[in-house]
């Protein structure tokens, strides 16, 4: 009885311990704190309608962040997601404007996203071009192609049906259907990464590429699929963007790559690879999307948006790094100290 009880307790303790040491915790605490402080300054901020609005407005960031998180977890980077998003938005918007059914526009956008992801993936995992360079180049090319495709013009007058996709709410709540779907996607991807053999390959590849190769893990295929998924998710983000905003310009999605990378980092995804979850990336996206709203509620100009984002990013990351290093040093010292035993010194000299 006693033993069983102990076992239970230790399991509970372990779960708690795991929770306390999760990297996402810093982000969650931060998010809650931010909402609490702003709520104290301006209680309107904590109204249900505003909270749901915050969630809903983070939807594009979230879906793209999930995609890029996969790439970052494998130890690579993708700075072409903004361009992919813009391209998908342009294509889907043009198609629905010209009368194509929504599903067809959606499929076309996804196909283009997958293609861009495939090109990135081939360049990085097969041609071995460093990922920052490969995706930087693809970013330039796709940006240029958006101009070619749209002839530099805005895509406007989107049909009402298309715009309502992003507006319809989950019955009884203020949360949009698409935000709900994106969260479901996040959970599915999370389970895939943590519960399946193949999913674990992603973190393994990012953690130790040599070790992964030696164990027969398909390193190239894993990276390639990460890029394709990232391209697809960016494309979905593009369609959602077009639907939410209602028009698309040739510079739509510019700078999104930096924002979603920032969201991942805020959510505890390590740029070194191997560490992080898509749930964390989603939380990071929520923080990113909330900052400008927060500024409005505490009566500051949204001009401070970038300043705050930059400070946040730096503070969270530096804090995390300093803590981790301290922990590592302490652990090392403890281990070394444990090794320094008391030896019977009799019989020398």
């Amino acid at each position: 009885m006693n033993v069983a009880n102990n076992g239970k307790q230790s399991k509970l303790k372990r779960t708690l311990n795991k929770l306390l040491h999760a990297r996402e915790l810093t982000s969650i605490i931060f998010l809650v704190l931010m909402f609490a402080v702003v709520g104290i300054i301006n209680s309107n901020f904590l109204s249900v309608s505003n909270l749901t609005l915050s969630l809903n407005s983070s939807v594009v960031y979230t879906i793209v962040a999930i995609g890029i998180a996969l790439v970052i977890i494998t130890g690579e980077i993708d700075v072409s997601v903004g361009a992919t998003l813009g391209m998908a938005a342009s294509i889907s918007a043009t198609m629905v404007r010209d009368g194509s059914p929504t599903w067809l526009a959606f499929s076309a956008a996804i196909l283009v996203g997958a293609l861009i992801g495939l090109i990135n993936g081939i360049g990085v995992s097969i041609l071995k071009v460093p990922s920052i360079i490969m995706t930087l180049g693809v970013n330039s090319i796709v940006r240029g192609l958006i101009y070619v495709y749209t002839d530099g013009k805005w895509v406007e007058n989107l049909p009402f049906d298309f715009k309502t996709i992003s507006q319809s709410k989950l019955p009884g709540t203020g949360i949009t259907l698409i935000y709900f779907s994106v969260i479901v996607i996040a959970i599915i991807v999370h389970l895939f990464l943590n519960r399946t053999q193949r999913g674990k390959y992603f973190a393994a590849v990012g953690d130790n590429e040599g070790g992964a190769t030696l164990l027969g893990i398909p390193v190239n295929a894993t990276r390639l699929s990460a890029y394709v998924i990232c391209g697809v998710f960016s494309a979905i983000g593009g369609v959602l963007y077009a639907s939410r905003v209602g028009f698309v310009t040739p510079i739509s999605g510019n700078g999104y790559e930096m924002k979603v990378i920032a969201a991942c980092v805020l959510g505890g995804v390590s740029m070194a690879g191997g560490v992080g979850t898509v749930i964390g990336a989603s939380i990071g996206s929520l923080i990113m999307a909330s900052i400008s709203r927060v500024l409005v509620f505490i009566g500051l100009s949204s001009d401070y948006d970038n300043t705050i984002t930059g400070c946040l990013l730096i503070i969270i990351v530096v804090f995390d790094a300093v803590m981790q290093r301290r922990n590592a040093v302490t652990a090392r010292h403890e281990r070394l100290r444990a090794r320094t035993g008391n030896v019977n010194l009799g019989g020398i000299k």
Binding site: M258, I261, A262, V265, D303, Y304, D305, N306, T307, I308, T309, G310, C311, L313, I314, V317, V318
Partner: peptide
């Protein structure tokens, strides 16, 4: 860090 810097300095 420089990503943070790019936000911070443009801000």
């Amino acid at each position: 860090v420089t990503l943070g810097g790019s936000f911070l300095y443009s801000g």
